[in-house]
């Protein structure tokens, strides 16, 4: 059940997202969807000198999908792709209920979404931004490998 699901952190990021806008300086973008519920976002990152210098998302969906993407961008902007991927791994373990208290602290505000682990139907909503990030980083990595080989 959704007790305390919609806490202030979540509703605030949903109604007043910091990172929901177009990003003209983006160096890479990735589309992510949850076909069964219609959540639909595009994640944009500006990668420069091995750092995620800026990021944004656009799209539509439930409060959990939108707030989660906004919180994610708060956490990963200014970090390296490797660090971002580490947060992703922690977040995915958190929403499936397999995380330690220390790890939870690392996630800062994203820890507010921990209670979603108790509501399996909404895990995919919370995971959308992060899954999209994973797909984006993977595509980027493959691109780099191709460049290295050539």
């Amino acid at each position: 059940m959704a007790d305390n699901f919609y806490g202030e952190v979540l509703t605030d990021h949903n109604l007043h997202p910091l990172h929901k806008h177009e990003l003209d300086c983006a160096t890479c973008s990735q589309h992510g969807v949850n076909p069964s519920c219609g959540d639909d976002i595009v994640l944009n990152l500006q990668l420069h000198n091995g750092i995620i210098e800026n990021g944004s998302f656009t799209g539509s969906g439930c409060a959990i999908s939108q707030a989660s993407a906004d919180i994610m961008l708060d956490l990963i902007i200014g970090k390296t792709p490797e660090e971002a991927d580490h947060y992703r791994e922690l977040f995915m373990r958190m929403i499936t209920g397999e995380i330690t208290d220390d790890e939870l602290e690392e996630l800062e505000e994203a820890g507010a979404l921990q209670s979603i682990s108790k509501m399996p139907a909404r895990v995919k909503c919370a995971a959308l931004g992060w899954r999209t990030l994973e797909a984006l980083l993977k595509a980027k990595e493959e691109q780099n490998e191709d460049i290295d080989k050539s």
């Binding site: 059940m1 959704a2 007790d3 699901f5 919609y6 109604l15 069964s36 519920c37 219609g38 969906g61 439930c62 409060a63 959990i64 509501m119 909404r122 909503c125």
Partner: peptide
């Protein structure tokens, strides 16, 4: 201003079953 899945989740938290989608 509220996505139907969030509507259904709030109803669920009050033990009320409705459909969204």
């Amino acid at each position: 201003g509220v996505h139907p899945h969030d509507i259904a989740a709030i109803f669920d938290s009050e033990n009320i079953a409705i459909r969204a989608g």
